[in-house]
Nucleic acid binder design. Structure first.
Lengths: 185, 185
DNA sequence: CTCTTTCTGTAGTGATCGTTATGGAATGAG
DNA sequence: CTCATTCCATAACGATCACTACAGAAAGAG
């Protein structure tokens, strides 16, 4: 009943696929690039992951889960200003971390608009909490502010892809922070 | 000496190429898509424009010139706050204009980092002028602020590509404006 | 051991990629 | 007119695209 077992680590292969998609995006990544990065042959890839679309879906979901961890950790802070600051700071560092491709797969890949909407919604909810906590003015447009923050993070990702240094990206983050309305004491 | 004249309008064909590259980017645009959009056959394309790389270079330069017109008109305003506001406003409208593809070719295409650097430098110089005019605090980091503004515009372009409405993109622009330090009276 | 099942590597599918050779049509020069 | 020159359309080039048929190898079940 049980035939020959798979000779490669599926999770490790998926991680390699994540990095390859991260570096070159969906369209520019060929199956040949993937098999080389993953250390397997095309039939193994198709047997284990379906096709290129399904592999990308699985890879982008793994990437998304990792990204959400960082965002969730940041927005868990009790003060909304600290929460957003940490989110932007963490984003800037992730976009320029050595050992990983520059920029962000979720923010760069055209077909991941759904993931971006999810993150934006989460940011908006954290801002609404900030308003409820009295840490943001009651008339704050959380929707508008969340869209702004997503746009800034997307811009940070693009700057990182253009070769921007960690300092430059962090400076963008700290500048964006000044657009957060201060607590009205 | 003078043979058969070209049977198509080179400028019109170039304009069609600009729009095609604008809509689908360099890598995702095939010669077949270009020839269809331009209304010519491959040999005509290669005879008139060299190859895909040179055609893109010419197209992106034409696009860049048009973009710079808008930016230059905006930053020509005497008040730096009005200048930046008009630049962001014009950018938002250009990214969502009916009749043209959403977003911005210059801000989206990976290989146009050089054009982005030029625009950023121009913005930075305008901000420095604002400092000299006393419209921005003397300790303003114009370099940091210009990088921020470029990042925001890039994010606006991405939002537009994701299907964002003109109102949403304009809201991002107006939020970004609040990060401009006010005149210190 | 044998049998069955599943994986693996080679090799190749048709389609499309960017690019171009070829040959006839169209034009200005003389 | 003739001739030289340039352009256009068909058709094809080799390379690569995503994907898979095939056959042999490797493992568990009995």
């Amino acid at each position: 009943m049980a035939g020959r077992p798979r000779s490669f680590d599926r999770d490790a292969a998926l991680a390699a696929a994540v990095e390859q998609f991260w570096r070159t995006g969906y369209e520019e990544t060929s199956i040949a690039m993937l098999t080389r990065a993953m250390g397997i042959t095309p039939p193994s890839l198709y047997a284990a992951f379906g096709d290129k679309d399904r592999l990308f879906e699985e890879a982008s979901e793994a990437y998304f889960a990792r990204t959400c961890e960082g965002v969730d950790r940041a927005v868990a802070r009790t003060d909304v200003h600290e929460a957003i600051a940490e989110m932007l700071d963490g984003t800037a560092r992730a976009h320029t971390a050595a050992g990983t491709p520059p920029g962000c797969l979720m923010l760069t890949e055209p077909r991941l608009a759904g993931q971006r909407a999810v993150v934006q919604q989460r940011v908006q909810e954290r801002l609404e909490q900030g308003v409820a906590d009295g840490d943001l003015p009651p008339d704050t447009s959380t929707e508008q502010l969340a869209a702004f923050l997503l746009a800034v993070m997307r811009g940070m990702s693009g700057s990182a892809r253009d070769g921007g240094t960690a300092e430059e990206i962090l400076a963008i983050a700290s500048t964006a922070l000044t657009a957060l309305p201060p607590r009205s004491t």
